[in-house]
Design a protein around this nucleic acid. Structure first.
Ligand SMILES: Nc1nc2c(ncn2[C@H]2C[C@H](O)[C@@H](COP(=O)(O)OP(=O)(O)OP(=O)(O)O)O2)c(=O)[nH]1
Ligand SMILES: [Mg+2]
Ligand SMILES: [Mg+2]
Ligand SMILES: [Zn+2]
Length: 571
DNA sequence: GCCGTTTTCGGCCCGACTGTTTTCAGTCG
C-alpha cells in the first residue's frame, strides 16, 4: 500500500507551503487530505486506477492530479520544485516546541539556518536577538525547546498514560477548591497511544487550583501558567495540560478538551451554520452572544440536534452524522465483560499457575476464564507437546472443581505454521474447549502468501478465534503484510471470531479494523494475552478499543453467560 | 485547496499564553 507514502508527501508539502507563507487554508487542505488517506482502509492505488480519488471528501481536482502523478510515477514534480524553494531541513526545525513556520522561515531568511545544530549554535552565542521579534528569552526558549525535542520520547502507550493520569487525578482530588475534575483529551477517548495528558477542573478559585496543580511532586518543569490554563512536564517527560473553568462552563470545556480536534472543528462549524457559537465556555447565540447551555456535554449535543456521543467515538469518523440521525450504536460497557479468553499459565510462558489465575479471575468478578498456552512448535515460549496437553487438561478439570462459581475453559493458542497448517492434530484440537489460532513466527512473508496461510488456518474447521490478527506491536513492529479485507471475509464465512487483543502494545485488531470487520458482519472476542495475573486488568483497553470500533454488547462473546458461551465453544 | 437545501465565490472553529510589542503575532490547545 502506498497510502502512507502519499500521506507523508502531502504532509511534507503542507509544511513546505507553511514555511513559504502560503495561505493557511490551503495548507490545511493538504493536511486534511493527508489525514484522510492515512486512515483509509482502501488501497489508494486502486482509487487512482479507477479514477475515483475525487469521491474522497477533501480531495478535489488539484490534489487528485498530484496524487495520481505520485502513485503512477513515484515522483511529484510540484514537490521537487517546492524543495528547490524551501530547504527540507527546515521541517526538522518545526519539531522544536515553540517554533512554528513563521519563526523558522525568519531564521532561515535572516541567518540561513537550516538545521537544529546550526540553530543551537546561533542561539547559544546570542546570535538571534538581532532579529525582529526575537530576544534573549526567545534564545533561551529555543535552546530549551531543542533539549525537550531530543529527550521527549513521543507518544506513550495507553496504559502508561492511564496510570500517570490516575495518579495525577488522585493528587488533584485533595485540592479543596476543586468542585469537579476529570481526565479529558485522547486519554478520555482511550486512544491507543497518548501524546499528552489533559485534565479539566471546575473551581471558583482558579489561581489557587493552578498553584496546587504545579505543586505535584512529579512535575519536572512548568511550561506555561495562566489563570485558566497551565502546562507542565512530568519527570517521565509526559506533558500535562490543565484547564480550569466555572461550573456553568464545565460541560462545554469537557466537550472542547476531550476532542478530538477534528470532531471539535466539525461540530463548531455545524454550530455556526445554525446560528450558534460553540467554545469551551458554552454554547452561545452567535448574534446576541447570549449563553444558552454549557453545564453538561449532553445538553450541548442535544441543543445542536445530536444524540450524546461517547468520548471513544469522537474522532470525526462519521459519529456526528450518526448522532444526528440517532443511529449511534449502543456501545459495549466497561462492566459488561464476564471473562477473558486469552491467558497464559506456567504450562507455557505465563508466570502464574492455573489456580492462581482462577483465583484472580474470580476476584475480578469474572464468570469464566480461558487458559490458552502456546502450541508445541513454539519452543521459545515453552509451547506444549501433545502429552503435556493431556496433563494440563487434567489439571484444569481439577481446578474447575475447586471453583464452582468460575468456569475455566481449556483453550490453546495454536500456531499457524508457515504452510497454513495448525500446530496440533485435529484429534488434539478437538479436546480443547476452544482454539485460538495465530501467527507467531515467519512474519516476513509476502502479502498473498501470508493471507493464504491465515485463511488456511481459519478454514481448518477447528479454529474458533483468530488471535492478534495483524501481529503489530505498537512502536516496535509493523503488522505483517496481509489482506485484512480478505481475512475479514473468510472470518465471516468460517464463523471465526476475530480477537481484539487487549495487551496495550498490541490492541489488535485496532479500532478502525474492528469497525470495518463489524460492518462485514464479523464477531469478536476479547483477550488480554496475560502472561501474569497483573495483566488481567488490560481488559479495559480491549473494551475501549471495541468501543472505539463502534462495537456493541452482542458483537463480543465475552459479554455472554457461560451457558451461552458453551453453546458456541466447549460443547 | 475544498466545497455548496440560504452560496460556484467566499467562507473555512475558537481561544489562552508568551514574548516583545505599545497593540499583537506566533504558537499551541
Ligand atoms: N476547537 C479546538 N480544539 C482543540 C484544538 N486543538 C486541540 N483541541 C482540543 C481537542 C483535543 O482533544 C484537546 C487536547 O489537545 P491535545 O493536543 O492534547 O490532543 P489530544 O489529547 O486529542 O491528543 P494527544 O494524544 O494529546 O496528541 O484540546 C483546536 O485547534 N481547536
Ligand atoms: Mg492530549
Ligand atoms: Mg494537550
Ligand atoms: Zn498469547
Amino acid at each position: 500500500m502506498k497510502n502512507q507514502l502519499v500521506a507523508d508527501t502531502l504532509y511534507m508539502i503542507a509544511d513546505l507551503l507553511d514555511l513559504k507563507g502560503d495561505a493557511f487554508f490551503k495548507t490545511r487542505a493538504y493536511r486534511i487530505a493527508a489525514q484522510t488517506i492515512e486512515a483509509l482502509d482502501e488501497d489508494i492505488e486502486r482509487l487512482v486506477n479507477q479514477g475515483t480519488l475525487e469521491s474522497i471528501p477533501g480531495i478535489g481536482e488539484a490534489l487528485a492530479k498530484k496524487i495520481t502523478e505520485l502513485v503512477k510515477t513515484g515522483k511529484l514534480d510540484y514537490l521537487e520544485r517546492l524543495k528547490k524553494e524551501v530547504p527540507t531541513g527546515l521541517i526538522d526545525l518545526l519539531g522544536i516546541p515553540g517554533l512554528g513556520p513563521k519563526k523558522v522561515a525568519a531564521l532561515y531568511k535572516k541567518f540561513g539556518i537550516t538545521s537544529i545544530q546550526a540553530l543551537r549554535e546561533a542561539a547559544s552565542t546570542g546570535g538571534l536577538r538581532t532579529l525582529e521579534g526575537f530576544g534573549e528569552i526567545t534564545e533561551r526558549n529555543i535552546l530549551r525547546g531543542i533539549q525537550l525535542l531530543e529527550k521527549t520520547s513521543g507518544r506513550v502507550l495507553l496504559n502508561v498514560a492511564y496510570e500517570d493520569g490516575t495518579r495525577y487525578l488522585n493528587y488533584m482530588k485533595r485540592c479543596k477548591k476543586i468542585t469537579k475534575i476529570e481526565i479529558a483529551g485522547s486519554l478520555r477517548r482511550m486512544k491507543e497511544t497518548i501524546g499528552d495528558l489533559d485534565i479539566l477542573a471546575s473551581s471558583t478559585d482558579p489561581e489557587a487550583v493552578m498553584d496546587f496543580f504545579i505543586q505535584y511532586p512529579e512535575v519536572a518543569e512548568v511550561l506555561a501558567k495562566g489563570s485558566t490554563k497551565s502546562s507542565v512536564l512530568l519527570n517521565d517527560n509526559l506533558q500535562v495540560d490543565f484547564r480550569v473553568v466555572e461550573e456553568k462552563s464545565y460541560g462545554a470545556a469537557l466537550q472542547y478538551f476531550t476532542g478530538s480536534k477534528d470532531h471539535n472543528v466539525t461540530l463548531r462549524g455545524l454550530a455556526a451554520r445554525k446560528g450558534f457559537k460553540l467554545n469551551e465556555y458554552g454554547l452561545f447565540d452567535k448574534t446576541t452572544e447570549k449563553y444558552i447551555v454549557g453545564k453538561t456535554e449532553e445538553e450541548i449535543y442535544k441543543k445542536l440536534g445530536f444524540a450524546y456521543i461517547e468520548p471513544e467515538l469522537r474522532e470525526n469518523r462519521g459519529e456526528l452524522e450518526a448522532a444526528k440521525k440517532k443511529t449511534l450504536p449502543n456501545l459495549v460497557g466497561y462492566e459488561q465483560i464476564n471473562g477473558d479468553f486469552h491467558v497464559h499459565s506456567t504450562w507455557s510462558d505465563g508466570s502464574d499457575a492455573i489456580e492462581t489465575i482462577a483465583s484472580a479471575a474470580q476476584h475480578r468478578g469474572y464468570e469464566f476464564i480461558g487458559i490458552t498456552d502456546h502450541s508445541q512448535s513454539l519452543k521459545i515460549a515453552n509451547g506444549m507437546t501433545e502429552e503435556r496437553v493431556q496433563k494440563k487438561l487434567d489439571e484444569i478439570n481439577k481446578v474447575n472443581k475447586k471453583f464452582p462459581d468460575l468456569r475455566i475453559f481449556s483453550g490453546t493458542e495454536c500456531d499457524i505454521k508457515t504452510d497454513g497448517t495448525l500446530d496440533y492434530s485435529d484429534k488434539i484440537l478437538e479436546q480443547f474447549d476452544f482454539v485460538y489460532i495465530g501467527i507467531h513466527t515467519g512474519f516476513k512473508m509476502d502479502k498473498e502468501t501470508m493471507t493464504k496461510r491465515i485463511i488456511r488456518g481459519m478454514e481448518n474447521g477447528q479454529a474458533n478465534f483468530m488471535a492478534h490478527p495483524t501481529g503489530r506491536l505498537i512502536g516496535k513492529r509493523d503488522p505483517y503484510e496481509v489482506d485484512i479485507e480478505q481475512i475479514i471475509d473468510i472470518a465471516k464465512q468460517t464463523d471465526t471470531r476475530l480477537e481484539i487483543n487487549s495487551f496495550p502494545d498490541r490492541l489488535d485488531l485496532d479500532d478502525a479494523h474492528a469497525k470495518l470487520a463489524k460492518e462485514h458482519g464479523v464477531r469478536f472476542v476479547l483477550g488480554t494475552d496475560s502472561h501474569s495475573i497483573n495483566h488481567l486488568e488490560f481488559m479495559r483497553f480491549g473494551i475501549a478499543t471495541a468501543r472505539r470500533g463502534w462495537l456493541t454488547k452482542k458483537d463480543i462473546l465475552n459479554t455472554s453467560s457461560v451457558k451461552d458461551i458453551e453453546k458456541i465453544v466447549g460443547g
